Computed example of a mutant assay.
Amino acid sequence: MISYSHKDKELCLRIHEQLLKDGFNVWIDRDCLYGSTMAGIANAIENSECVLICMSNTYKESVYCQSEAHYAFERRCRVIPIILQPNYKPDGWLGIIFIRLYSDLPNCITQWTHDHVKLFLLQTGLGNTILPLCTRVDGQRLLQLYEMCLINSESMYQSLKFELSERHHTLLPIADYLSFLHETKLYLPSTSTNVKTARSSFLSSVTCNFM
């Protein structure tokens, strides 16, 4: 599948035609003949061996392209970037996508920067739920959030759910909350496998506000 901005249509159709000549079966949105376009795109992403993302400034500015790219990553599709503009360097949300393709997370959460946290949450499919709550959170603060969740899981779930609903008008499924705890655990430093009792009384009194 080719994901592209319609402002780059001429070049992307040439790429599509060349791939067809080379023997590849490549879906592009003009092939969507039945049903809604978004349904056709979602179906193409779900059934493609890989997704070609045609990166450009117009791609970055398109909310539809952003939805396609994020869905492809949440589905853990194989993504191949194509830079359409000379010397173009993806930034913003597209820059994060680009970093995901070529960067690995440090093994320990305490070494993570803000960008690593964003990368982690996008990779684990939590970009629409946990990420909005952690826009300025580095690895140390993410670890603190994780430990607070361990201390009082139900209370923290309700706090995060309320904040996400009030500030971002989005629901926090319990499955995403549990996924956050499970995925974060894989990157804990060896000294943080258990939360110390002495610390729990302090953390349980802290108001949850990571914005």
Rank of each mutant, 00 (worst) to 15 (best):
L143H: 02
V137R: 02
L145N: 06
D115F: 11
H114V: 05
L119Y: 04
K118C: 09
L105R: 04
L143C: 04
L122T: 01
L121C: 03
I83H: 11
Q144C: 12
P106L: 04
N128F: 10
W112P: 03
P86G: 02
Y88P: 10
Y88S: 05
W93D: 01
L122W: 12
W93L: 03
D115A: 09
G125I: 01
Y88D: 06
C108A: 06
Y102I: 00
L145T: 00
R100D: 08
S103Q: 15
Q144V: 01
I83W: 09
Q140M: 11
G95A: 06
F120I: 00
Q144F: 14
F98L: 07
P81F: 08
Q85H: 13
Q140N: 09
L126I: 01
T124W: 12
R136H: 13
L105F: 11
Q144S: 13
L84R: 07
D138S: 08
L101M: 15
G127E: 05
L143W: 02
G127V: 00
S103L: 12
Q123N: 14
P90T: 00
I82F: 15
L119D: 06
I83Q: 08
F98G: 01
P86V: 00
L122R: 12
I97C: 14
W112G: 01
L145K: 07
P132N: 05
L142R: 03
P81E: 06
L94G: 01
G125H: 05
I109M: 11
G95R: 05
P90L: 05
V117L: 07
I82A: 08
I83P: 10
I82D: 07
I99H: 13
R100K: 08
L105Y: 09
H116G: 08
P86K: 08
T135P: 11
Y102V: 00
C134T: 02
